[in-house]
Write a protein that binds this DNA or RNA. Structure first.
Length: 434
RNA sequence: GUCCGGAUAGUGUAGUGGCCUAGCAUGGAGCCCUGUCGAGGCUCCGCCCCGGGUUCAAAUCCCGGUCCGGGCGCCA
């Protein structure tokens, strides 16, 4: 016996009539009609029907096949037969069925999607949930989306880097961090690659990108936050915020195009009709967005961030992807560059989907003295930033960059409501396992 | 952090004081059935989160606990 398949389920065609093939996968369903028994085998790529006719099949094989438990792993060798009555017009007449791993019964949840399951049940048995066609489709699309991102950034001359995820005490401020023990010292999980990708500008890499994990210790409990997420980051020298905005919108556009072309079956499985957003995305200044929020009846003081409700109100007023630019300097981090003509404003932007924020970025402060000044102004201690500030003292080019939430990009693209649905093993406030 | 909601077979649900010996679907066991594709038919199996209280009577009301979901805040 070999444990090798010759074909995935999707690789079998009616034209192969008469060929002997070996398929391997999970027993999705068994429909036993008495004199004829259909076994539906499922693998990563699809389903294939294995048909056993009582009169023609070896009695032992027939009896073993019809008694298999759902979700057991089997290897089936047989002859492809073109058959009009079969799904897709073909089936396999088995010569042998080897059970490689018997599944226990009952299953923790339904794989055939006849009965629903709560997200909590699904995540507790994620390995089973991931066998479901729609769940698999989400991750196939996520894969294509991120592949498109990598291809796009490579074609734009970005060098992919990997920055440390374990970092020393110095932080960017703002979000809460996860403390860890690093030998006998205190350390943290990184909240973003921000400081390191900026250091790479001083290193002369010119354009860098990273797709990596970020960690935030916020105790939020929403459908769009996780404590471990994937961030798509870029940093580019000799560019300003409008240059990187242009890269960002083309990237998002490219992802939609790539997914709509390469993931047709998956989109169909999910019932998603993907509308590719038009370029260029609309640009609103913070003041414009504030005006729209006011018109929608949301009172926000100049200088405050938009709350969730006002943010959605602006989003539905715009109705498509858009940028909010020129944020008040004091609500942006210290590395954000002030506008030369009016330092109350910054050279910053957020990329918004009508439902939520997707990305934020800016032109950065590249002057060492201004950066020190800004760190102090934000109430932080420059001493903790030595390793970072040092890179600004020996030739730091002007630069700009952004960070884009990979999960949010995928979930908004697919209309998925819960961010946990687009992460294999999500980490939220309550879930640390599996 | 704060507010709101929920917990009933393996899974998803109905049931808001007695009509509950808890209904339905899916599932499991078994039987019948030669073209199913959410197969069909028949029989059977399996559930009220934990503890206390109110009441003649609690799945249902009250209190405490545990676990879960969600809104807002927070999230440079």
């Amino acid at each position: 016996m070999t444990i090798m398949r010759t074909h995935y389920a999707s690789g079998i065609m009616p034209e192969m009539d008469g060929d002997t093939v070996t398929v391997a996968g999970w027993v999705h369903e068994i429909r036993d009609l008495g004199g004829i028994c259909f076994l539906v085998l499922r693998d990563r790529e699809g389903f294939i029907q294995v048909t056993m006719v009582k009169k023609k099949t070896d009695p032992d094989l027939f009896d073993m096949g019809r008694r298999l438990n759902r979700e057991s792993v089997v290897l089936v060798t047989g002859v492809v037969k073109e058959a009009k009555q079969a799904p897709n017009g073909y089936e396999i007449i088995p010569q042998s069925v080897d059970m490689l791993s018997e599944a226990e019964s009952p299953l923790p949840m339904d794989v055939t999607e006849k009965v629903g399951a709560d997200i909590d049940t699904r995540l507790d048995s994620r390995f089973i949930d991931l066998r479901r066609r729609t769940t698999l489709a989400v991750f196939a699309i996520r894969n294509h989306a991120l592949k498109t991102v990598r291809d796009f950034l490579a074609s734009e001359g970005f060098i992919e880097i990997h920055t440390p995820k374990v970092v020393a005490a110095a932080t960017e401020g703002g979000t809460a961090l996860f403390p860890i023990t690093y030998f006998n010292r205190e350390a943290f999980l990184n909240q973003s690659p921000q400081l390191y990708k900026q250091i790479m500008m001083s290193a002369g890499f010119d354009r860098v990108s990273e797709i990596g994990a970020i960690f935030r210790a916020e105790e939020h409990d929403t459908l769009r936050h996780l404590n471990e997420a994937t961030s798509i980051d870029i940093e580019a020298s000799f560019m300003d915020h409008s240059d990187v905005m242009e890269i960002l919108e083309r990237l998002v556009h490219d992802v939609y195009v790539g997914v709509s072309r390469q993931c047709v079956p998956q989109l169909e499985a999910l019932g998603v009709e993907l509308a590719v957003p038009e370029l260029p995305f609309r640009r609103l200044t913070y003041d414009d967005a504030l005006e729209i929020a006011h018109q929608q009846g949301h009172e926000i003081e100049w200088g405050d961030d938009f709350g969730t409700v006002a943010e959605r109100a602006v989003g539905s007023a715009v109705g498509e992807h858009y940028f909010i630019t020129d944020w008040p300097l004091h609500i942006k981090p210290y590395y954000t560059r002030p506008r030369e003509d009016d330092s109350r404003y910054s050279k910053s932007f957020d990329l918004m989907h009508p439902r939520m924020e997707l990305a934020s970025g800016s032109q950065r402060v590249h002057s060492h003295s201004l950066l020190c000044q800004r760190i102090v102004a934000c109430g932080l201690d420059p001493d903790g930033f030595d390793f970072y500030l040092k890179a600004f003292r020996y030739g730091m080019p002007p630069h700009a960059g952004w960070g884009l939430g990979a999960e949010r990009l995928v979930m908004t693209m697919l209309g998925v409501e819960n961010i946990r649905d687009v992460v294999l093993f999500p980490r939220d406030r309550k879930r640390l396992s599996p």
